[in-house]
Design a binder for these strands. Structure first.
Lengths: 221, 221
DNA sequence: TAGCTAACGTACTAGTTCGTACATTAGTGA
DNA sequence: TCACTAATGTACGAACTAGTACGTTAGCTA
């Protein structure tokens, strides 16, 4: 390389705290999702940023806090998505199916988020516990589910004895497993749960499952 | 400490290759499950063994191969459990419910295995791919499910259009999620999915869900 | 325009961590 | 009982990695 340096600015140093901070978070999200908390390298995150490692410590304090910030942002994305839920104008059966489909879509669209959740569980949710922000979020979806369930039970359509949290767990289970365990499942059973041409199949399967559960005829107890 | 050493043997060195190897695998399973692949420390595994780090490299070659060996043994445990499945004398509905319950029980009884699977998925199943043994196992449970499904469809009890692999995924999803995501779910929604007094509730819920799905009346297509 | 500070960069270090070179010994078979 | 090898232990090193001490500058404001 000859003496040709940066064109105008000798250092190219531009100050933009918000951009720097956001860029660190973006890259950190990828790196943590790629390699896990311990496997992620602070130097690697810094290298893939337009700034330096020093800035990670300047803005976040350390690797742990950076991971917490990554989780906080990832969860805030779902919250925002859930706040835009608009299914309550549908009848209960259609509303639940639609909600399940949106959950399905969100999981599929955010594999990095799924990986972060897996990683956080390996660490027994210690970062969530350490976050003032994440403790008290409460899922907007939960309220929606609760209202649909009540309405469905009132009209006699839903017979199952579940509350919103359990139904949310049921729906999330399937969506989460499909994305999170894609690799081992594929390696062991030779089936790619996230194959594009099977997407509709699994999306329908989830809806059928949830609706069948909610509307099944139960033995009187 | 005074000069009191080992009672009889000056070094206490006993040779038992099988025991040493097994002990390393036991401790490694715990350590990998505790901290993830990268987070696990080879020195820590060695320290909690009656042998030394040298032996880990002697028997397994390295950290990667040790993790692969841990996975191989963990999967072999399920395979053995599945081989003892004895549900085909039941009617299809009872058989599937029983099978779901056994899957539920196995997940609950082996949280370390669940963690290993999560970890292996973070690493995109590269160790399973590298294992000659793990590639071609094929689940005994899958055959059982396949036969029950066929029998259930024949007798008109089952209406759902699923194969054994998909049904296995559905059952596993719920069991896996409940254990694997216990911590984040608990932190975010304030509900412990693995609480002892809720065990029957979730076990029943799983069975109800699967049976409802399989036996639901479907719109003619 | 001078000065101040938030924002940024460089260079380094202390501690860790996987892996190995080398030495040793228990137990077995000739 | 002697020799041979599988099994084991010790000590060490090279590379990595989180974190920091210290110096610099852009851009705002008085």
């Amino acid at each position: 390389m000859t003496s040709v340096e940066e064109p105008a600015r000798p250092n190219g140093r531009i100050r933009d705290a918000a951009r720097t901070r956001a860029e660190i978070l973006d890259v950190a999200t990828q790196e943590f999702a790629r390699a896990g908390f311990t496997g992620a390298r602070v130097d690697e995150i810094a290298a893939r940023t337009r700034t330096t490692k020093r800035m990670i410590y300047y803005y976040f304090g350390g690797k742990e806090q950076l991971f917490t910030a990554v989780l906080e942002r990832a969860y805030s994305v779902i919250r925002e998505t859930e706040q835009q839920l608009d299914v309550e104008h549908l009848d209960p059966v259609a509303a639940i199916r639609r909600l399940a489909e949106l959950t399905f879509d969100h999981h599929e669209a955010h594999p990095d988020f799924i990986r972060l959740v897996s990683i956080e569980n390996i660490h027994e949710a210690e970062h969530i516990a350490a976050s003032a922000e994440l403790g008290k979020i409460g899922s907007p979806a939960l309220d929606v589910i609760g209202r649909i369930l009540a309405s469905g039970r009132e009209s006699g359509l839903f017979t199952a004895d579940v509350d919103a949290v359990d139904l949310h767990a049921m729906i999330s289970s399937f969506c989460f497993f499909r994305v999170a365990n894609r690799h081992t499942f594929g390696a062991l059973f030779g089936r790619d749960l996230v194959a594009a041409d099977q997407r509709e199949h699994y999306r329908t399967m989830l809806g059928d499952m949830v609706i069948a559960y909610l509307t099944a005829e139960r033995a009187a107890d």
